[in-house]
Computed example of a mutant assay.
Amino acid sequence: MSQTTLSIPGKTIPASRDRLQSQLLTAACACSLLLTCYSIFVFSLGRAGFAFVAGPLSIAVAFAMVVFALRSATLGGCLLGALICFDLIAWTRDYNSNLLHSALTPLLALFLLTWAATRIRRAEKERAGLAEPKHGRTASQVAANLAVAALIVTWLGAWLFGKFFKLPYPFSYFASLAACLAALAEATADTISSEIGQVFGGEPWLGFRRVPPGTDGAISMVGTLAGVAGAAIVTGIGWWALLLTPKVAAVAFFAAVLGLFFDTLLGATVERAGWLGNDLVNFLSTLVAAIAAAAGIGLLR
């Protein structure tokens, strides 16, 4: 008997394999996020006091509630999103200023841009079978797009940069911020390029031939330019919010664009072949963007 495949146009991965990959990715990200959130709570209660995390915790809970009210994510997606939001704020906040000088601000920009993009001509996308479910993004989709950005600025990211890039302070600090911003910008670019390209880009290209919208790895000029513009907006906002230098922000932007094209490459190859699902492809693309940004900071030394 042949395996059942996803019914979305252009998807070839068996549904059971896609589901298993998404479940494993969600479990791994959830455990890692719980660990990093726990570590910052231990630091807070042991040294800095609860006030250290009270602000990030309140904002993370409020943000999750708003997302759930807008039906932009399922309950599981909102719970995982709260962990991500808490990590992003707690590990990047500027202690001499308000909480807007943290990764919260580019995260909000990402949410608003992608939320608007998914709702442009939604009825048309629904008729074509390309629209997101009305209950919003699942936990696996949230993990695939945002977990790298949240984890890369914690002690996990510091360990990664120390082990593989051997970056001394302050380069390790700038590398983590640039990596976080690059991952957020790539996730924004990926969603916008897909959502805008499906309704304004006509039939996209896969190699040198036209294919139906929604085909893995297919791109359109309109969608790609919209995605790059979205990455530029998030990077520009992150530049201000994270108090970055122009060079660091530029590295983050180009790393995000690299991640966007890497996502296209994976879609046209391993995803189209049915080896990897969309969630794992998105996760790997944000990871490549983050690592590229860190490597770029290393070259600036």
Rank of each mutant, 00 (worst) to 15 (best):
Q3V: 03
T5S: 09
T5D: 01
L6A: 14
S7I: 10
P9L: 13
L20H: 10
L20I: 14
Q21D: 10
S22T: 09
L24F: 12
C29D: 03
C29K: 01
C29S: 13
C29R: 03
S32C: 13
L34Q: 11
L34I: 15
T36F: 01
T36Q: 10
S39W: 03
I40V: 15
S44P: 07
S44R: 09
G49P: 04
G49A: 05
F50K: 12
F52P: 00
V53I: 15
V53R: 12
A54M: 10
G55S: 12
L57F: 05
A60G: 10
V61A: 13
F63I: 09
A64C: 12
V67E: 12
V67T: 15
L70T: 13
R71E: 14
S72N: 12
T74C: 07
G76P: 09
C78I: 05
L80K: 02
L80Y: 00
G81P: 01
F86E: 02
D87S: 15
L88H: 01
T92D: 02
R93W: 00
D94E: 07
L99V: 11
H101T: 08
S102F: 03
L104I: 09
A109N: 05
A109K: 00
L110H: 07
T114D: 04
A117Y: 07
T118A: 14
I120E: 02
I120L: 12
A123Q: 09
K125Y: 03
R127H: 09
A128C: 05
G129T: 09
G129M: 08
A131M: 07
E132P: 00
S140I: 00
A144V: 10
A147E: 03
V148C: 03
A150T: 07
L151S: 06
V153S: 10
G157H: 06
A158L: 10
F164K: 04
Y169D: 12
Y169K: 06
F171Q: 12
Y173K: 07
L177H: 09
L177A: 07
A178K: 04
A182I: 03
E186A: 14
D190R: 01
D190T: 11
I192D: 04
E195T: 05
I196G: 03
I196C: 05
I196N: 06
V199K: 06
F200I: 02
G201D: 12
G201H: 07
G201M: 11
G202A: 13
W205F: 05
R210E: 14
P213D: 12
P213S: 11
G217S: 08
A218T: 10
I219C: 09
I219T: 13
I219D: 06
S220C: 11
S220Y: 10
S220T: 15
L225A: 14
A229I: 13
A231C: 02
V234Q: 01
I237D: 05
W239P: 02
W240D: 01
L243N: 15
P246G: 02
A249R: 03
A256H: 00
G259K: 04
F261Y: 14
D263I: 06
T269Y: 05
R272E: 08
W275D: 06
L276S: 12
D279N: 15
V281D: 10
N282W: 10
L284V: 11
S285C: 03
A290T: 13
G296W: 02
G298V: 11
